[in-house]
Design a protein around this nucleic acid. Structure first.
Lengths: 200, 200
DNA sequence: TTGCGATCCGGACTGACAGCCCGGTTGGCA
DNA sequence: TGCCAACCGGGCTGTCAGTCCGGATCGCAA
């Protein structure tokens, strides 16, 4: 019997999302961004924030979901190369490339989302498990050797937020280079065919 | 002009290391192990603990170093298959397998060590950078395609503490299976030759 | 053995932060 | 317009890393 959200609640929820989005895009160190900061920036009390999102992880999930949603949709039911009607090997490459791009575009946010917090590791997040499951199936469909579960984890390890952040921010490696290197690494892991450079 | 450590300081340092070792081996959730806990278990004041190790990361580093030291030595100047006189491809496999084993044997400790804390990511730790550099060189020596830097990161991602913990503790995958899967994954990444099962 | 200063000890203290609580307010249906 | 459930806000609590400083201790020198 979940009643509809009251209008003020909806307004505040939106305000928090907007403010948090802005903040995470701005601040240099997402881990140092406190819930008080977010509440203050949204012009809302802390109680309101926690009522709306449960806890820090809940807020981060909500933020991330908004960013990730289009990609998720494209993967689940869009046209090639992301959609289901693609050759598994190319689909894997396309998916990882797309994830790479989204994460680079939302570096701080993803960093915060993947931060281990409260005993919940990245690998327990439903988001992760969904993609992992899909990659498992796809890897198996390519018929290469090796355990598909571990391989899927390895592929996803290539786009972990902290690694990307290190390579991009710390080491200053360009997005173009990252995408190319990722593509060739994926080809290697999947038992190299020819490498196809990204188009977008 | 670093003066020698006073005897009581050395004694306390040892007591802290022993107690912390014991605790990290015992507790279920290393992140919940506070410095107060460690100090109390060691029968020492918190000030003493921080004087000796600087901060939490310092203590964890010291603990990890003791565990990792033998392996580091074996890699740097031991006999094959870990030592320098080994064929690069086999050496990579041997090193990763050894790291896997050490980390599994010290699961909670490694989990705590690799925990991102205070803006210092895994990739900035000198420990990591050392192994990464070595793997880079070895990967390059195998002459396969792909960017050696990224490949070395990927290889090390296969033995990240949180992944291992998830596979071993959460999913209940056996050590034997993990070692075998890791070995075949490494072979894949390095442009598969034949897989050789671990001996130890 | 005794004196003495540098070093070290310890636990109270601070600051930061996630999450809870509850008296007061407000939205929206009757 | 009245009523009450839902919601607001910010003060409060508990936890934890790291600091501080008065007092204890070590170990050298005489």
């Amino acid at each position: 019997m979940t009643r509809a959200e009251r209008s003020d609640a909806a307004r505040n929820r939106a305000a928090v999302l907007a403010a948090a989005d802005e903040l995470f895009a701005t601040v240099p160190e997402p881990a140092r961004l406190s819930m008080d900061d977010v509440a203050a920036a949204a012009g809302v009390g802390k109680g309101t924030l926690f009522r709306a999102f449960g806890n820090r992880a809940g807020l981060l999930q909500a933020l991330w979901q908004r960013r990730y949603e289009p990609l998720r949709y494209a993967i689940e039911s869009g046209p090639p190369p992301l959609g289901p009607e693609t050759d598994p090997r190319q689909r894997i490459a396309a998916i990882l490339d797309a994830i790479l791009v989204v994460k680079l575009d939302n570096r701080h946010l993803t960093l915060a989302v993947e931060e281990r917090s409260g005993g919940t590791s990245l690998y327990e997040q439903p988001q992760y498990q969904l993609v992992h499951q899909l990659l498992c199936d796809l890897v198996r469909a390519t018929g290469g050797g090796g355990d598909s579960e571990l391989l899927a984890h390895l592929l996803l390890a290539a786009v972990r937020a902290d690694l990307l952040n290190h390579l991009a921010s710390r080491r200053g490696i360009s997005r173009r280079r990252l995408r190319a290197d990722l593509a060739s690494a994926v080809d290697l892991v999947l038992g190299s065919a020819e490498a196809s450079p990204p188009s977008d």
